[in-house]
Each structure stands twice: as C-alpha cells, then as structure tokens.
Design a binder for these strands. Sequence first.
DNA 1: GTCATTGTGAACTGTGCAGTCCAGAATGCA
DNA 2: TGCATTCTGGACTGCACAGTTCACAATGAC
Lengths: 191, 191
Amino acid sequence: MARPIGFDRSKAVNRALVLFWRQGYQATSLVDLLSAMGISRSSFYAAFIDKRGLFIECLDRFSGRTLEMLERSRAEMPPVDALQSFFEGNLLGARSAKGHWGCMLVNTVLEMAGVDDELAARASQHLGVIQRFFQACLEDAGATPSRAEDLAAMLMLVNEGIRVSSRRRLPDAQHMRPIATTFQMIRSAIS
Amino acid sequence: MARPIGFDRSKAVNRALVLFWRQGYQATSLVDLLSAMGISRSSFYAAFIDKRGLFIECLDRFSGRTLEMLERSRAEMPPVDALQSFFEGNLLGARSAKGHWGCMLVNTVLEMAGVDDELAARASQHLGVIQRFFQACLEDAGATPSRAEDLAAMLMLVNEGIRVSSRRRLPDAQHMRPIATTFQMIRSAIS
DNA sequence: GTCATTGTGAACTGTGCAGTCCAGAATGCA
DNA sequence: TGCATTCTGGACTGCACAGTTCACAATGAC
C-alpha cells in the first residue's frame, strides 16, 4: 500500500471484481486473482492490503455501479419504467454472460453471514441504499410514503430472488414473466 | 458405508444438516461436523462416503421436510392461506433462531453454482418441485393454469428473496409487511 | 551509461483442510 | 471368560491456501 505502483490499479480491481462476483470470496483463490489481474504476487501485496481488503474495494465499487445504472435509468424515463427496465435489463442481462452471476451484494450476504459478519453487514448496507432508491422512485410515481416503503421492500425481495434465480440457469422466460407480472401488480397498486 | 454402525445415524445427519444449513458447505469443516455429530473421524468415514456425500443426504432431507411442511399446511387450510402461512411461519421463523439461516436449497444454489455445479443443480431441482407445489395450490384456489404458473414463479422469487433477506438480520417487520403485501396482491389477482 | 524506481519469479512459512490408517479401548453377546 | 464387533484417538499424508521475503530483471529519467 505504501509503495507506488505502475500498473493500472483500477483495471486490476475490475478484473478482480469479475472473479469475486462470479465465484464468491472463498472460492476465489489468490492465484485466480493474480492471473486475472495480470500482476505478480509481490505487486499484489504492494498495491493492496490483502485479499479481504481488495474484496471490500470490489464490493463498494459494485454497489456504486449499480446505483449509477439506476440513476441513469431514472433520468431517462418515468420512475416505474426505470425500475422495470433496471430489473429486466441489468439484473437478468439476458444477452451478457454476466446475467448468470447474480448480484454480488446478495451473494456476499449469503456467503458471509455467520462466516465474516462484517463483510455481510457491509453488503447489506449497500442493499439498503438501493432499496431506498426503489422507494423514492415509487413515491415519485405517486405512491404514499408508507405504500412506497412496502412496495420497495417487496421489490427488494423480488430483486434478491432474481439474483438467486439467475444462478439456476433456467430458461429466460422463467425469469422475464414473473417480473412482468410483478410490475403489472405494482402499477395497479399505485394507480 | 459397508461397515454396520452403532450410533444413531439419522440423528447424526440431523446435526450435520443444521451446520450445513447455517454455515454452508465450504465453511463447514470436517472437525465442525465431527464435534456436532458426536462421532470420531473414523466412524464418520465408516458411515458416510465423504463430506460431499453427507451434504447431499442433508440437502435431500431438507427438501423432503420442506415439502412435508407445505403438505401439512395444505391439508389444514385453504390453498392460498396455506401458502401464506408457510411463508410467514416457516420461512421467517421469527421465534426460532432457524429463521436467520435462510433456505438451505437457495444457499446451496448460490454457494455452489460455478463451484460444484452438480450440487447446485440438485438444489435447483428441489426448488423446482416446491415451485410446482405453489402452482398446484394456486390452481386449486381458482387461478388458470397459465396464471398459476406466473404467480408461482413470482412467489418463488419472493421466497428466494426472503431467504436472502432473513440473513440480513433486519427487524422482523421488514420481513412480514412485504409478505402481506405480496399475498394481498396475489389474492386480488386471482379473484 | 547510471541510477533509482518498480515489477517479477520463486522459494519459503505456517496453517488448515479432507481423507487414510491402525492399534487398542469399549461394548455386547454366548 | 472369551470372542467378535464397533468405536476411538491420534498420527500421518498430501494438498491448497494466504501471506512474506528477497535477489534480480525491467523500465525510464537524466
């Protein structure tokens, strides 16, 4: 951490993020990381605290990106459309392989709860921020604060469920239809 | 496996199940298992194939129990009530500590997808059976087969979400209200 | 060319793991 | 009592892992 580094640190973190996202924390070995990041063991420890520190950095970055995606959607279309588009596009990611990796935050909660509670709590906090964004969108769409809170919580359940479901490699229709059903219900609950 | 054993095999499997359920496969060491099961290393390998074999046995047992619980509820009350009671009672398990462990099938899908795909697929199959049970209940309640399929898929998403959410140690209300909201919507979608 | 900075490869430590093996203790039956 | 069955503790193998260290190679500025 003290020594300056020459390689592109941010790019290296991105590559690590992909691995952690796909395989989880425990199943990703240092050797996996080094070969993906294209740096040597020694450089790794010069640039990062340790494996766990790098993981935290990836977790925070993942959360930041997810929020950016949501905000971009929100700026481009009506609030409920923005949410639905987020669910359909970025969570399923039908076109990209990434679609099957689920949500790194959800994965982390499940993997680390009871194993490394600090990591689990950090991921859970990020999820809380995202849920509040859902809530704000629903209020924008005309729901009462209380109703928006309920629906946002339900949406987070569905969100978490999709992330699990996306790991089951079921046919795409099995993912898309329940999302459509869910938003159909949400729209009629608001209006 | 060949040698006969003296201890209560079924009870030992139950104790292993609790550990695997709470901690996952990778985070549960053989030493953890042995001390929980109250047997020695040697007896373990005389009675079970290996750690993985025992895990499969636990997975199947967990699935069987879950289905039993659903069938018991279904025999005692109207179909949608049975589902709601299953969600509220057995998934959250607000009273028992078990409530925070989530669903072993969901946990396994998430932990093992990409690490041991055979285990993940087995857990996913069990989830499929449960989803078909949801569907049958919804048809009993008067939904068309197609509608029942959609709602069952959505319900499985919520189910999976709850299991994630239950690991986040949020206040209980945060769990119960979205379930009520969900079933409220389902009832109005059927009638 | 010189020299400091930065990255590399490989060896090494220590730890924890699953799985094997066996001598002997405990148990239970006749 | 004697004998066979069953279980135990512990030693042991072999492996994978995270993290440390260091001599040396590459790079780049002057």
